[in-house]
Design a protein around this nucleic acid. Sequence first.
DNA 1: CGACCATTTGATATGGATCAAGCGATGTGG
DNA 2: CCACATCGCTTGATCCATATCAAATGGTCG
Lengths: 232, 232
Amino acid sequence: MLTQTAYHVVSHSAPPVSHLGRGFGASTEAASLDQTMHLMGATMSYPRNTEIFGENESADYIYKVVSGSVRTYKILSDGRRQVAGFYLPGDIFGLQFGDEHSFSAETITDAKVLVVRRRAFDALAGRDASIARELFALSSKELRRMQKRVLLLIKSAQERVASFLLEMAERVPASNAIELPMSRQDIADYLGLTIETVSRTLTALETSAAIALPTSRRVVLRNRSALNRMNG
Amino acid sequence: MLTQTAYHVVSHSAPPVSHLGRGFGASTEAASLDQTMHLMGATMSYPRNTEIFGENESADYIYKVVSGSVRTYKILSDGRRQVAGFYLPGDIFGLQFGDEHSFSAETITDAKVLVVRRRAFDALAGRDASIARELFALSSKELRRMQKRVLLLIKSAQERVASFLLEMAERVPASNAIELPMSRQDIADYLGLTIETVSRTLTALETSAAIALPTSRRVVLRNRSALNRMNG
DNA sequence: CGACCATTTGATATGGATCAAGCGATGTGG
DNA sequence: CCACATCGCTTGATCCATATCAAATGGTCG
């Protein structure tokens, strides 16, 4: 098993190893915001299954996935885990209204993450209205994703899984083939289902020719309109 | 049954009757924001079960409950209704990142609502940083409520109902007695349960002496720690 | 008093959880 | 290079919480 080897700073100055910030939605950034982050930030490398920040740490950084993938989650008092979101290359996470993270963030695979000090960023947003607007737009996107999840969680297992696949497919445009970086357990904890139900539902979708599963982590959408119909 | 009688303007200038803006969380306002709303706004009266704004209308107004209570909701394609939030006197709703509402808003009881043009408000926020900060804080609160709901919706019926009661109790401090303005159906649609399950769960909580139900709309919290324990 | 609507209560059905076992891929040590 | 352990995933059998269907009760208003 892979554990917490030393983080590897890839470029620019090195931020402290204990990091903060918080994410719950994925967003593709606009031009200027993106450029700014690259100018101000440092790229860090993490092995897979490594914590990037923990719940209740103060949210001093904003993050952008350069390569690999990340999940944010929360452990409930009864020990169950609720996965809040998945972040793929290009996605920004750690956006947080308050001072403290309400989720933890971990790499799913080996990943490179661009890390930017929130304070520097906020200062910039104060001077540059377009940056402020972009930040606001990102938060707005997060909120919308959140709303979508609330609607998802009152639906059936099939609907949840279909929604999940369509959501993932949106992020990898120009193809019906999706490579899922996350495990069935991750998906289950994201959708509020068990691993068995996720597995069975995927099998059922394959049987009904809505999808194909060349391997367990690769999904081909064969019939999007059928999936959309389930999606509600 | 009460239907759409003419709205009654109570004070100040009258905004158009077709209104917009969108709400999904409740918030008690801070001083200056509150004062500003009262200075700039008009108070409207609505009979109970009356639409204040509809989904997909443009979000031109921000609202504050003066008296009575309001629910925001969405009708799903399968006809089910998801209630997004309940708003009691003092709560602000219609806060919306985007241009269009993603929910509808209706009165639950007869209600007076303070209505303020969003544009005037935004202009003010541009000049007054403290107003901007307050608006931001409200959005932040909304987001946190949303996150709480996501966690709620993966829990059991008992946990959901207990959470709901505690949430309502927080809004009417200094007492363990809650007067619920909303029907069992409203509660069920808020918690993603059926009306029967809500009713049975309340009965069970009463049987276990966690609450008392002097009337169906009045709940007395008898054992908060028991409820908190269920809450997780 | 009677009609209507909200709520509760009862009986049964069912989707997804839980418990349990098998299977395939991947990696390790011999 | 193969045998075996491990891990992630699938599949099967059963159970249980909540939904669904149905009826009774209670409260409100004309």
